[in-house]
Simulated assay, not measured.
Amino acid sequence: MLREPTPEAQAPPPGCTDPAKVERLRTRLNADVVERIVDEMRVLTDATRVRIVWALTHEREICVSEFVELLHPLKQSSVSHALSALRSAGVVRKRPEGKVAYYSLKTDTIRDFLNERIDKATRA
């Protein structure tokens, strides 16, 4: 977990010309915000979860059975575990409909990020 800077560390270094800018940035990017960003990024360090998010960048909603088919030979338990991690990180949302659970991306931010990474990787 990130720690808040000590009072001594909060003083701008010599030569800093805009202490107000530093304070604005410190206020917006506090330890809690950084931790949420790290959690979102950490969840994308697994190939199965990246495949799930990638699929959701192309389809609005996908049910668990479709993910199991798409990610074959993974078992449903592995797919469900990956979906659970993505939900915990706030990347996807679950919409139950009877006995079926549908998943979608929670925001376009992760979609844009992943599409940019994919574009860059395919051009390399």
Rank of each mutant, 00 (worst) to 15 (best):
D32F: 12
V34F: 12
V34D: 04
R36L: 13
V38M: 09
V38A: 11
V43I: 08
L44S: 04
L44D: 05
A47E: 12
T48F: 05
R49E: 02
V50Y: 01
R51D: 12
I52N: 06
I52S: 04
V53P: 06
V53L: 07
A55Y: 12
A55N: 06
T57C: 13
T57N: 03
H58G: 09
H58C: 06
E59H: 15
R60Q: 10
E61Y: 11
E61W: 08
I62M: 15
I62Y: 03
C63F: 05
V64S: 14
S65E: 14
S65M: 08
S65T: 09
E66W: 02
V68I: 05
V68A: 03
V68M: 00
V68E: 03
V68R: 02
E69C: 07
E69A: 12
E69H: 11
L70R: 15
L71Q: 07
H72Q: 07
L74H: 14
K75R: 14
Q76D: 10
S77L: 10
S78Y: 06
S78F: 05
V79K: 09
S80N: 07
S80W: 00
S80Y: 01
H81Y: 13
H81Q: 09
A82P: 01
A82Y: 01
A82T: 02
L83V: 10
S84I: 02
A85T: 08
L86V: 06
L86M: 07
S88K: 15
A89F: 00
A89T: 00
G90T: 01
G90D: 01
